[in-house]
Computed example of a mutant assay.
Amino acid sequence: MQKLPETGYLRLNQIIGNPKADPPVPPIIPVGKSTWWEGVRTGRFPAPVKLGPRTTAWRIEDIRTLLRQLGG
């Protein structure tokens, strides 16, 4: 797994990975996009932060907390 910075934000492709990117982005949490958004909707995954009209991201601190809860 990649090392996460202490603070900041992650975009969705950084969280769930993107094998088509060059170089490929490995997933931090290996789920699909629709599974991720369903988890956000139900509260299983953290809520995003809108950084702009077309920019959605998640706080690294929230992703770290999720990883601890999932046992990773």
Rank of each mutant, 00 (worst) to 15 (best):
D22I: 13
I29D: 04
T56A: 01
L70W: 09
K20G: 02
I15H: 01
P19H: 02
G71N: 08
Q69G: 02
K3L: 13
R68V: 14
P53K: 13
R59I: 01
L70H: 08
L67G: 05
G17W: 00
G43Y: 08
R64M: 09
I60G: 05
G71L: 05
V40Q: 07
W58M: 04
Y9H: 12
E6L: 13
W37V: 03
L66H: 04
V49E: 12
K33M: 08
A47K: 15
L51A: 09
R11D: 00
G32Y: 10
T35F: 05
P19Y: 01
E6H: 10
Q14Y: 03
L51K: 11
G72I: 11
F45A: 05
L10F: 08
L70C: 10
S34E: 13
R44V: 12
T42E: 12
P53R: 11
L12Q: 05
N13H: 14
T55P: 00
R68A: 15
P27A: 10
D22R: 15
T35G: 09
I29K: 07
W37L: 11
V25Y: 01
T55G: 00
I15R: 01
K50T: 08
L66Y: 07
I29A: 05
P23G: 11
I15F: 01
Q2L: 13
G52V: 03
S34A: 12
L4Y: 06
A57Q: 04
L66W: 06
L66N: 05
P53Q: 11
T65I: 13
N13Y: 09
E6F: 06
I28C: 05
F45V: 03
L4G: 02
F45M: 06
N18H: 06
W58S: 05
Q2Y: 04
T42Q: 11
G17M: 04
Q14R: 12
L4C: 08
D22G: 02
D22L: 12
A21S: 14
I60W: 03
K50P: 00
L67R: 12
K50L: 10
G52A: 14
P30Y: 06
V40C: 10
P53Y: 00
N13C: 09
A47Y: 01
L67K: 15
Q14C: 05
V49C: 04
T7Y: 15
L51Y: 04
N18T: 04
